[in-house]
Every structure is written in structure tokens, then in C-alpha cells.
Design a binder for these strands. Structure first.
Lengths: 202, 202
DNA sequence: ATTTATACTGTATATATATTCAGTAAAATT
DNA sequence: AATTTTACTGAATATATATACAGTATAAAT
């Protein structure tokens, strides 16, 4: 990370102190008041310098939209929640992210990358109900019996994984649903990740 | 500290999440967006209620001038995990505590007091499987349909709660198990708390 | 029975705030 | 030597935001 000048350090310090004191970040005018500047542009330019050097992020247009970056302030992480939609990939693309929730990665045995919001009851006998959040670790290394996020073209599903040779079976945990048979080399087929945990908000 | 209503809790939760996510508090409009309100005054009145009850302070005239009170601010807590054993009470007595896990209380809509480690499959159709951790809020105020921790003498179970008059029914979510009928005044019967969430470590 | 609190919609507005533009000047980099 | 970065003042402005006011309706407290 790029070094800060003395003035920039003062501004960063001022932001941290202000947040500690008030609970929310300062405005440009607040920074001027604290540091004796007479023009809001003095603060503005320092902020842009801090942003450029990676110490803060600025949400444009938002008042007090200053956020200390991870290196700058130790924060408890937020994990994205992604909707399980029939069409569209469950990647971390912005349009698929439902929201972020604060969470400790360490809760489950494995680390994980995102939560998948479950739709439907195809895995109900595995205790996975509608609207549950399944913690997904992005990986294509899965074992028989794992609950995996599989993509076939645009369709994304959560199923038990079972492979033998070149043949792959995706097995629902609900008698009302059918098993899916695919070939390992089928175009458009992809294992997005596997379930490593679950949380349910009652 | 005065109790919050469900809506007020949701607003408080929303503020906490927003701060964790963005690093700064939400505007009235942000709260409306998150919770589906159509008027900024909906957020405003809730904020004033939260202020009056001492959960937040508001700096008048300042944008995003919301500050969580000390008691309100999240300390990442550790929450005890208690085994659901056939004999013995699921109280917080040391001998019953399996371990402590770090956890943010704010994850679920309601706060909660401990995790119950589920034994058996009597609630499997409710998506509650063996070894799941059910977040329990200690309370005896439960409603029909709630999943409750009930104690009958030394036996502790997790069941759906259904009462009519003096008669209480404890209903399993599994056809292999029988419903339990009890009288409200039965000696040794006690509602320990209710489920407000669930996590599963795969 | 009356008041107060809860839980909103909808409109309006003063002002708090981010942000751009026009300068000045010294220091650091290329 | 030329350019970029740092470090500001000062003024202007679009818009983000808090907040008041007028309603409606239900639940809880006194």
C-alpha cells in the first residue's frame, strides 16, 4: 500500500477519530472544522487521495459516504446472499446479490464464499427448506454425497452429487422431484460449489 | 431498557446491518428501501421511537446522524451450545454446555440466548435435522405454531406448540412420532423458550 | 372512555452535503 | 525542464437528506 503524506495521515486520523466519537463518518465541512481548513475542497482532495491510495472508499453522491478499507479498519466481514434463480448464473455478479450480512467465516468447519437463498423444496428431506441460506464454498472438487450447486446452462440447482465414471447423477432429497442424469463432458454443465453449512432465519 | 416492538427491532437490525455493510449509517430513505416503506416518515418515526427508548442517539440536522448506544452496539459475543439430552434440564448450567461459539446475535430477527444441539429426527419435516443448532430465545411467551423447547419433568423436547384453552399439544414434525397432550397446570411442565433460527455445520 | 403509542402513506421544503470549477503556490517526480 | 502531486482558498450549485405537516388506522395504556 502506498505511503501517506503527513497531511493525508492527519485526515485519515481525523476520520477515524470522528467515527469513534460520533458513530458516523465526517462531512467535508466537518474535516475542515477539525483540521482548520477554510475550503471544503481541501478535504475533498485529501479524501480522493486517500481513496486513490486505497485507504478509504467513497460512495459517490452519498453524504458521509466514507468507508475505511479492511486494512485501515478491522471489520467483521460481510458475506453476500445470492438468490437461487432458475435463470442466470449464481455468481457474485452484483445483480444477483440479494444483500450482504455480517458473518464470521469461522463458524462452519470450512470457509465459504456466499450464501445461497433456497427456493423450492427439492431438498426438503435433507432439512433444507424454502428461504434457508446455504453456505456455499466455490469449488469444483466435490465428492459423492456432497450437496452441490450445479449449473446446467442457465439453470442452477442444489442437489446431492453422485458420480460413477463419466456419468453424473444429481439427486433431489424429495420424492416429488426427479433425478438428473448428465455426462461429465456435457457442454454447459458446471459445478459451482458445495454446501458447507446452513442458517435459517425464523 | 424498554422493550422494542417487532417493527422497531427490524429497523434497529436494519441500521446495524447497514453500518456493517457500508461503514456509515443509513438515511431515512435507505431504511425505507431496505424495509419496503413508502414514506420517509415511516423511518423517521421509528428512529424517534428507538431514540426515546434509548437504543440510538440522533444528531439533529446531521445527515446519517444515527449512533448506536453502547448497549446496542455489537460486541461479537460467544453463545453457548447446549446438548438436547433426554434427561436433565437444558438450562445454562455449566455441565450442560457443550462449548461456546463466537456469534453475532444480530443474525436472526430476534435476539437469542443459546444454541440447542438437536438429537433425533422428531422435527425432520420442519427441516430440523440431527446435530443442527437451533437458536433459542428464553421466554415462556409463545404462540401457536412456534417451535418451542418444552420440559416435562426431566425430559426436554423440541416441538411445535399448539394450545387451546387449558389443553396444550406438542406436535412433532415427523409421522413416526406421537403428539404429546398436556394440561397447562401440569406440574413439572414448563416452556423453556422458542426457536428463532437455525444453523447447520455440515 | 380517552389518551397515547404504533405504524404507516404522501407531500413539501429548508438545508446539509458532495462536488465541480477557477485559482495560487510549493514540492516531488519524471 | 516539464509534469505531476501536494496543499490549499473561494465561490457556486445540484442534489441528498432531515424533518415538518397533514392524514388514516389499529393497538395499547390510563
Amino acid at each position: 500500500m502506498k505511503e501517506l503524506t503527513i497531511q493525508q495521515k492527519k485526515v485519515l486520523q481525523c476520520i477515524k477519530f470522528y467515527i469513534k466519537k460520533t458513530g458516523f463518518p465526517p462531512t467535508r465541512a466537518d474535516i475542515c472544522r477539525e483540521l482548520g481548513f477554510k475550503s471544503p475542497n481541501a478535504a475533498e482532495s485529501h479524501l480522493r487521495a486517500l481513496e486513490k491510495k486505497g485507504y478509504i472508499t467513497i460512495e459517490n453522491g452519498a453524504s458521509r459516504g466514507i468507508n475505511l478499507t479492511e486494512n485501515t479498519a478491522e471489520k467483521s466481514q460481510t458475506i453476500p446472499v445470492i438468490g437461487l434463480v432458475a435463470a442466470g448464473s449464481p455468481t457474485l455478479a452484483d445483480e444477483n446479490i440479494e444483500k450482504h450480512i455480517p458473518f464470521q467465516e469461522s463458524l462452519f468447519l470450512s470457509d465459504f464464499d456466499y450464501f445461497l437463498r433456497v427456493k423450492g423444496l427439492s431438498m426438503k428431506d435433507a432439512g433444507i427448506m424454502e428461504d434457508d441460506l446455504v453456505a456455499i464454498k466455490k469449488t469444483s472438487e466435490v465428492r459423492n454425497g456432497d450437496i452441490v450447486v450445479a449449473r446446467i446452462d442457465d439453470e442452477v440447482t442444489l442437489k446431492y452429487f453422485q458420480s460413477s465414471g463419466n456419468q453424473i447423477k444429481l439427486i433431489p432429497a424429495n420424492d416429488d422431484f426427479d433425478e438428473i442424469y448428465i455426462n461429465k463432458e456435457t457442454e454447459g454443465f458446471f459445478i459451482e460449489g458445495k454446501s458447507v453449512g446452513l442458517i435459517r432465519e425464523n
